[in-house]
């Protein structure tokens, strides 16, 4: 009796997980799914498995998801040298429209090879946009990948500024 009730409830929660689009609501629904699964384990005479399922499914997995979600909302820009505030205003407006957080790093910190040696390969940051200044033509160049979804709107917004140019590069095929 109770088992069939929990099973039907599990079916409804699964359907709402599949159809939901907001990321933060999904985490709470996943935690509820894990709780109901643990109660089902208990009613089938297996209390050890229920305890492990609660500890892992309701405490660890939402933490992983929350960290991954919060890392998705930062927009990293790498610059070589120090630049005028006009480009920074443009990037700030872009981030405000898309609800992202702006983070600017210097290129010397990312590619510092003497201190790291071989470990530098594993520790490179995820960079979205590279900022450069072309001294002859006097405009700024923003380089980004074509597969990056966050920079879709950057090209349209840069048409209003004559001194900013956006370049989208294609990925190199890897040999995996």
């Amino acid at each position: 009796m109770i088992k069939t009730f929990f099973l039907v409830l599990l079916l409804f929660i699964t359907l709402s997980i599949v159809l939901q689009k907001n990321n933060k609501i999904l985490v709470v629904l996943y935690s509820g799914f894990s709780l109901i699964a643990a109660s089902l384990y208990f009613f089938n005479h297996a209390p050890d498995v229920a305890l492990a399922e609660i500890a892992v499914g309701s405490a660890f997995m939402p933490l992983i998801f929350l960290i991954a979600i919060s890392k998705q909302t930062t927009f990293t820009v790498m610059q070589q040298g120090h630049f005028h505030m006009e480009v920074k205003d443009f990037l700030y407006d872009f981030c405000q429209i898309e609800n992202l957080k702006l983070k600017i790093v210097q290129s010397e910190d990312v590619f510092n090879d003497e201190a790291k040696g071989i470990y530098g390969v594993f520790r490179r940051q995820d960079i979205d946009v590279i900022l450069n200044y072309h001294p002859k033509m006097q405009h700024y160049i923003l380089t980004c990948k074509q597969s990056n979804v966050m920079t879709n709107k950057l090209l349209e917004m840069s048409l209003k500024y004559p001194s900013i140019k956006v370049v989208r590069t294609k990925d190199i095929d890897t040999m995996d």
Binding site: D48, L51, F60, L63
Partner: peptide, 25 residues
Amino acid sequence: YIILNGDISVGGGFQGGVIIATSYL
């Protein structure tokens, strides 16, 4: 507590270890 009473009642090594890791994190 869950680790030390692993052989009398419900619990054991793996479950208690996960709880200790949760408290640190």
